[in-house]
Every structure is written in structure tokens, then in C-alpha cells.
Simulated scan of single mutants.
Amino acid sequence: MENENQKKYYRPVTNLLVFSVVLVIILFYFVGPKTSLSSKTNTFGQEKVAVSDLEKKVLPTEGVTLPVIWGDLGSKLVDAGVIDATKFKALYEQKGTFTDEYKNLLLGQDNGKIKITNENAGYILNLFWAFGLANKNPILETGEMSDPRYGGAENFASTGGWTIAKGNVMDHYSKHKLINLTPQQQALVDKVSRGIFRPCCGNSTHFPDCNHGMAMLGLLELMASQGISEQDMWSTALAVNAYWFPNNYLTIATYMKDKGVDWRDVKPQEMLGFDYSSSQGYAKIASQVVSSPAQRSGNGCGLDLGGAVSPPARSGSGCGLDSGGAVPPPRQQNGCGL
């Protein structure tokens, strides 16, 4: 009888202990993670703010005004047949992205300084690509592009990818004297072009085998011809490269921020060098970045047809003509062609 009473007594005690253990587990499971999740949410929110602030520095939403006057260069490129205006306009009109700004830059006679933005970066890339390809320059005629080891200048993305010229693209390659450079200005272009790399490959602007390299060469030539200082050439090149390769330079800026260096304090010449801006250098930098910034699209190695691009996730275009338009996040980078 006594044993039966003890069993009756122990059973509720045992049940109470089991219930207590279960209650503790439930409280730990639901209360603990809530606190942790809240902390993560706050941390994530802070990271988003930090990335947003970083983007404002690397890719100003209001754009960056380039220190060069475009004038009637677009019209000259059309008159020379470097750009077939009908084909060029059609690429944009089919996307509904051929704006008045684009029309003026292509056909206008008195354009002022160019402002590059997230929205028009691809169009600016195409214009400078055409200009860099067509303007007569010894870098194109005696540099790496013409080295027999590479099989001829016509075999690169920067030449073969330009499919909207009148006639054969090589009939325009370094054939038109659109601007004049003094020996000193040419020497400056040569020097700076050797120090500017691009994340899509391991070559400098002195070897403009893709559209980015050819466009940057054109920009350097135009800046030198208008008396822009070497330091301003480096600074402008970094700002432009950032709009053409937004993901890459947001990552580089994050890397510098982690090292305690604000993007406004970086040395443009260093950032554009092989260790940061070449594909090899960038890969090493990216491997050391723990918190990746929000992805944005860039302009690939092809004709970019522009259009408004909505952050945060935007993809790049490949090594060919890119028809642009509104870009849904994310999309794959296009290859070296149309």
C-alpha cells in the first residue's frame, strides 16, 4: 500500500519535471531566437545603410560631370560613317530609350560637358567607344592592338564588336583625325593609358581590346586635347570606370572601407592600377571582402542600349552591343558581341 502511494506521489512530480523541461526548451527556442533575429535584423539594417552611403560616394545618383566638352563629335562620327545613325538609333528606339539627350549627343552641334549617370553610362560608353576606335592615334597603330602575335587588330572585341559602322569597321580604325594632340598631350595619353586597367580583363587601356578599353582611350585623348591635368584625368577615369563596372568598384570601395580608408580619400591612380582594377587584381581584392555590397549592373564589352536601371540588383553587359532597356534584377552578363 505504501509503495502504491509513493508511485502516485512520484508520478505527478515526474510529470511536473518533464513539463518544466519542455517549457524551458520552448521558451529558449522562441524567445532566444527572437532576440538573436532582432539583433541580426538591426545589424543587417545597419549594413544596408552603410552600403547605401557607400554607393552615394562611388556612384553618385546625381551623376558626375566630365571635364570635357563633347561639342559636335557625335555628328562628326556619323558624317564619317563610324556610326550609322539609322542603325544606332533603331537599337535604342526599339527599347524606347532614345531620349532627347541621346539625340543631341549623337547629332547635336554644340554639346557642352557630358554628365555620366547610372542611366546613361552605357550610352556614353558607346559614344566614346566609337570615338576611341576611329580617332587616329599611334597607340592603335603601333601598340599592342597591331602586334602580329595577336593576329591583327580586326580580331578583337573592340573592333569586331562594333557592328554599326558604315562599311567595314577596319576602314574606320584609327583613320579619322577628329582631334589634334600635341606631342606632350600624346605622351600624357600614353602614360595614363598604361596605368588604367579594367576588371573585365588583365589589359591596360594602352591595349584597348574591348569596348571599355577603347572607350577609355577615347576619353583620355579628348581630355588631353582640352588641356585637362594628369591628376584630373586619373580622377575622371576612376569615376567613369565605376559607372561602367559598378559591382566591382563597390566591392573595391568596401575593401578600402574595411581598411579604414574612405572612398573620397583613395588615390585614383592606385585604384585604377593592376592590383585593384585588373581582373586578376580585383579577384584578390574581392576574395578578402566579407560583406558584399548590393549588386548593380554594369556595362559589358558590347554596345549598350541603355535605359533606366533600377537598383539594387543590376547586371553587366558583355563584350558586344548591348541593347539595354529597363533591367530586371538580376540578369546574366552578355558575351563579346550583340
Rank of each mutant, 00 (worst) to 15 (best):
E2G: 00
Q6A: 09
Q6N: 12
K7L: 15
Y10V: 08
Y10M: 12
Y10S: 02
R11Q: 10
P12N: 08
V13H: 09
N15R: 12
L17T: 10
S20H: 09
S20W: 09
V24Q: 07
L27F: 14
L27C: 12
F28M: 13
Y29L: 12
F30V: 08
V31L: 15
G32H: 11
P33F: 12
K34Q: 13
L37G: 03
K40A: 13
N42V: 14
T43W: 14
E47G: 08
K48N: 10
K48A: 13
V49M: 07
A50W: 03
S52R: 11
S52G: 13
P60V: 06
L66Y: 00
D72P: 06
A80R: 10
I83N: 09
D84I: 01
A85N: 10
E93C: 01
T97Q: 03
E101P: 08
K103S: 14
N111P: 03
G112N: 03
G112S: 03
K113C: 07
K113N: 15
I114A: 06
K115F: 00
G122D: 04
I124Q: 01
L127H: 02
F128T: 03
F128V: 06
W129E: 02
N135Y: 04
I139L: 15
E141H: 01
S146Q: 14
R149W: 02
R149A: 12
G151E: 05
A153Y: 15
T163R: 09
I164K: 12
A165M: 05
K166Q: 15
N168D: 15
V169Y: 05
D171Q: 09
D171I: 03
D171Y: 04
Y173H: 02
K177M: 08
K177E: 15
L178Y: 02
L178W: 04
L178G: 03
L181W: 04
L181T: 04
T182L: 10
Q184A: 15
Q185P: 10
Q186K: 14
A187H: 12
S193E: 06
R198H: 12
P199W: 09
N203S: 09
N203V: 02
S204T: 15
T205E: 06
H212V: 00
M214V: 08
A215Q: 05
M216S: 13
L217A: 07
E230I: 05
M233A: 08
W234T: 00
S235W: 00
T236F: 00
A237L: 04
V240S: 05
Y243M: 03
N247I: 03
T254N: 03
Y255F: 15
K257I: 00
K257G: 00
D258T: 07
G260P: 09
G260N: 12
W263H: 05
D265F: 01
K267M: 11
K267I: 15
E270N: 12
E270A: 14
G273D: 15
K284M: 06
Q288R: 12
V289G: 02
V289Y: 02
V290P: 01
Q295T: 11
R296N: 10
R296S: 10
C301Y: 08
L303K: 02
D304M: 01
G307W: 03
A308K: 10
S310D: 09
P312F: 05
R314A: 11
G316W: 05
G318M: 07
S323W: 10
A326K: 11
Q332P: 05
G337I: 06
L338R: 11
